[in-house]
């Protein structure tokens, strides 16, 4: 018998780990020595996607930098649940300044490291979608434009969760928030508003822009690794379901983060210097309803008379993403 290389593994690359793989080929999260940068005892809600995403991303960055990492955090759930006096869950040097300035504070930290000749120490800024796409957007754009050596991570839970689920510029159409009531002719958030910051980040032609989802750990970690292998301004936009704000079951966090990608509503891709260099091809395409109906914020679409038109418009958004980013491998 010819000696053969076994290429197939029981769970391929989709599970967190794989006992059949060499340690070096497993995900950071599978490693017993992972840094647990965001440790137990934090006060995030049950099933919080942001808590998960933060540990995924920071642990990966810690591994990539051999723990030579400093994190800057915007105000928001992540900050509040991780550092209420007298306890912090962080295991790395971390600072919280304000809601809208994480990118700039990170610029300052990076400048300090550079001037002190400690370029091995890398800097991450992180915040929620509100802290990123709205109030922190000026600082973010400034950091991008100067190409400061910072990886900015946005944990997108599509709303101002920490203040009680208000609308942000990342809130999707039709979604109910406490400031987009399901009343009137256009219940929920209106169509035709909002912005997709990864695309704006690309317009800055920074070295690296990527989107990720907590349901695709391997992909997420690979992107953090890629980001940390580069210098200059980098942006990672991670989709993190919020069970509380979305009215979803806590155990559905990863399911939702998967469905949003498999529907096409949230494209996973990466770009370097403004050009898309990689995209995730949908593995198991599903209609948007499957994603929407698990969340109470869309409950008004599925009443006695389902809002077929609205659902259709959301489906059209998914279809447009699929076209625009070439999310269906062969067909594209």
């Amino acid at each position: 018998m010819e000696p053969q290389i076994i290429k197939f593994y029981q769970t391929g690359s989709f599970a967190v780990g794989n006992r059949l793989l060499d340690d070096s080929q497993r995900s950071v999260q599978a490693d017993m020595r992972r840094s647990n940068s965001l440790n137990s005892g934090h006060r995030a809600c049950q099933g919080c996607g942001e808590a998960l995403g933060a540990r995924y991303a920071i642990d990966a960055a810690m591994q990539a930098t051999k723990n030579q990492l400093i994190a800057v955090n915007a105000t928001g759930c992540l900050e509040v649940f991780s550092t209420p006096y007298p306890e912090t869950s962080w295991q790395l040097p971390w600072i919280h300044s304000l809601f809208g300035n994480a990118a700039a504070v990170a610029t300052g930290v990076a400048a300090a490291m550079r001037v002190k000749g400690r370029e091995e120490v890398r800097v991450i800024a992180q915040g929620g979608d509100g802290g990123t796409t709205d109030i922190g957007f000026g600082c973010l754009s400034g950091m991008f434009e100067r190409n400061d050596d910072v990886l900015y991570i946005c944990y997108d839970n599509e709303g101002y969760m920490n203040t009680g689920v208000q609308r942000s510029s990342a809130t999707p159409p039709a979604a109910r928030t406490s400031t987009t009531a399901t009343l009137g002719a256009d219940p929920g958030n209106v169509f035709g508003q909002g912005k997709f910051v990864p695309a704006i980040a690309m317009a800055h032609e920074i070295p690296y822009v990527a989107t990720a989802s907590v349901a695709y750990l391997r992909d997420l970690e690979a992107k953090v690794h890629r980001a940390m292998s580069l210098r200059g301004a980098r942006y990672l936009h991670i989709f993190v379901p919020c069970p509380l704000g979305w009215g979803a079951a806590s155990e559905d966090t990863i399911r939702l983060a998967r469905l949003v990608v498999e529907t096409g509503l949230f494209p996973l891709f990466e770009a370097e210097h403004g050009e898309v260099t990689g995209r995730y091809h949908i593995r198991n395409r599903v209609p948007v309803e499957e994603y929407l109906k698990l969340q109470k914020r869309y409950a008004h679409l599925f009443g006695k008379r389902p809002a077929v038109d609205t659902i259709g418009r959301i489906q059209a958004m998914a279809d447009r993403n699929i076209r625009r980013y070439g999310l269906l491998g062969e067909e594209a």
């Binding site: 029981q10 780990g17 995900s27 440790n39 934090h42 099933g47 919080c48 808590a51 990863i254």
Partner: peptide, 13 residues
């Protein structure tokens, strides 16, 4: 089968 999923996906370590 020790796929590490539970270990990985727990938001609370």
């Amino acid at each position: 089968f020790e796929c590490d999923n539970c270990y990985g996906v727990c938001p609370d370590n």
